Simulated scan of single mutants.
Amino acid sequence: MSKKRRRVFDIDMPEEQEAPRPGGPRISSLEPRRGPMASAVRENADSLRDRAETEQAIRAENDALAHEYVSLRNQGLVLQRVPLGEIRTTKLVRDRKSVGAEDLEDLKTSIAQIGLSNPIQVEAAGDGYELVQGLRRLSAFRALAAENPDGGYGTIPAVVLGQGESLEGLYRRMVDENLVRTDISFAEMAALARSYAESEATAADTTDEAVDALYGSVGKQKRSYIRAFAKLLTVLERHLQHPQAIPRALGLAVRKRIEAEPETLADLQRALVTGGARDAAGELEILKAYVGQGEAAPDPAQDTFPVGNDAPRAGKSPRKARTTFQVHSPRGAAKCTASMGRLELKLDADFTTMDRRKLEAAVQQLLAMLDD
């Protein structure tokens, strides 16, 4: 059987050319290719890094804001709503008498209609707060809360001072605000100065030092008036029921007569004690009678203050001559004061209950005896 031979042909084939890729350059097949999982991991790592950087920036900003808030709060520049039950009024002696319900009606109406325009000021104190400024506003809120428990008056807008300010600084905050009030009286300011001087927690040892410490921002003349009222309260505070109602001129006149005629003080104290319960107008009448009822009270601008300087100013009239003496009678001791154009008799008796004809006859007899 014959074998067929297989013929082999040598054929030269051209080199294969890679087809061009549309839309971009050729990518070398030698570069490593990233799978879908690797790409996802890389993208997630980048996202986590960006998020961490953002959170770090936010934390830094929050820390800066927190430090700024604490600084502003300690300076009393941050407004908060403070529960009424956490506010105490015991640390500072208040510069005004207790607030009566009738004095709050207008303020309560204003708060109910438009809210509190001026927040109170308190100091952080342990588990609560101590009032620095705003006794009337706090009293009005407490009254509104009692009248309307569901009216939203359980908290009050307040500027909260941080702990650490000196007692002297707290007193000055209270006083400086109240100096702009038109209803703050000299007696109230003087009473506060006396309490300040008596406190062991303050540096003032005398009332004069207390006046300078508390009222350093007011004029020298006004401070002299406060000192005069402080001296007046020293001898009359236990006998006065409405010292805050005493006008400046009347208080200065009373103080000057006590200074010039100390023997008349007992009579004034007795008149205030025997007067019993009275309103402010009744008490003022007693004081006016003491300095001369019917005469205009001296003008403070022409008084020689500070108290104790009795020398008349140049160009001013000297003090009017006055004679005082006592006459004893079955009704008691009668205080008599005689001056130019005036004769005054003071006796612990109600002359309005006496027969007018008897009074006229007695006066006529007195004048007839004086003419003789």
Rank of each mutant, 00 (worst) to 15 (best):
S29V: 13
G23E: 02
A45P: 01
P20F: 00
G23W: 03
P22N: 13
P32M: 02
P20V: 13
A40C: 02
I27R: 15
S29A: 15
Q17T: 15
P36W: 06
G23D: 01
S39E: 14
G24A: 03
G23S: 03
N44I: 10
R34H: 12
G35W: 01
P36D: 07
G24R: 06
Q17A: 13
A38D: 05
S29G: 09
R26D: 08
P25R: 15
P20R: 08
R21T: 13
G35C: 04
E18N: 03
A38E: 12
A19S: 09
A40Q: 10
N44K: 12
R21D: 07
L30C: 02
V41P: 00
Q17H: 13
A45W: 00
S47R: 15
P20T: 09
A40Y: 03
L30M: 10
R21V: 15
P32G: 01
R33P: 05
P22M: 15
P22Y: 08
S29F: 04
P22W: 09
A45L: 13
E18C: 01
R26L: 05
S39P: 00
P20L: 14
P20C: 07
E31G: 04
L30Y: 10
P32L: 08
Q17D: 09
S28T: 06
S47L: 11
P20K: 03
R33A: 06
S39W: 03
E43M: 07
S28G: 06
A45I: 11
G23T: 02
R42K: 12
D46F: 02
L30Q: 15
E31T: 15
E18S: 08
G24I: 04
P14Q: 01
M37Q: 10
P25L: 11
I27G: 00
Q17V: 14
R21F: 01
P25S: 10
R33L: 03
I27D: 00
E18M: 07
P20Q: 06
S28Y: 00
A19N: 05
M37D: 10
G35Q: 00
R33F: 06
N44V: 12
G35I: 02
E16I: 09
N44M: 15
E31S: 04
I27Q: 10
M37F: 11
S39A: 11
P14N: 05
A45F: 02
D46H: 09
A19W: 01
R34S: 10
A45K: 07
E15I: 11
A19R: 09
S47A: 13
P14S: 03
R34I: 14
S47Y: 12
E31Y: 10
P36K: 07
M37C: 04
M37V: 15
E15V: 13
R42H: 04
E15G: 02
Q17E: 14
